[in-house]
Amino acid sequence: MISPSTVAAYATRLGDNALVLGQRMIELVAASPELEEELANANFSLDYIGQARMFYTYAGEREGAGRNEDDFAYLRPEHEYKNLLLVEQPNGHFGDSTVRQVLFESWYVLILDALTRSSDEGIAEIAARAIKEVRYHLRHSSQWLVRLGDGTDESHARAQASLNELWRYTGEMFVADGLDEKIRKDFKGPDLRHIEAQWQENLAAIVAEATLELPGDQWMASGGKQGRHTEHFGFLLAEMQYLQRTYPGASW
């Protein structure tokens, strides 16, 4: 049975990924290794915030309960956020954030591509706009991964360590839950098994060019899609929601 709340829930989840990642990238303002990189980071953060706004606004419309984008962003508690654990990880150093971008964006670009063919027009339209941005992001972040992997001994070691550390958060991207299945069956959404195969192939190519090694099979973290986060998330939310929580009902 097709229910509007399926689409609303799925759009919200996509919005959560975009918002949390955008928020992490915003923390990097005035901390980039070079001025030109500041601009790129700010550009991309803006794109993610923009995508979050589109997804949340659409979710609110489909839900039909009068919630707007800020209600989603500022007035939900931790367990209602269903973002991937990968995007809430702290920025670390430039190698960590670069690896995070590559791992996420190489998944996200495939998801968005599939969603442009979704039978839900709202999601398809947002996906079509977002994918242009994310393709450019992925080009940027994978070029950087190659420079770090194939740069100096130090940058190679750091990038490899980042990859090894963040790998445990990639499994979750391909484990379909009930919502993923509904979107796939009822709305021509992505098949995560196909996405995984493609992702592994694409990532292997980037990692090889970067002269890095893919980590082997290991235990994978999970819980993001169920709203069970890592300890970092509470702090991220507290900071982001502070003003709205302190002055309830005020307009900004």
Partner: peptide
Amino acid sequence: TRAPSLKRKAILLAKVQDEAGHGL
């Protein structure tokens, strides 16, 4: 990180980005 609405967050981010650009 503490901007009180998504619109304000985006506007402020665009402004800060402009400043980096002006520096350049």
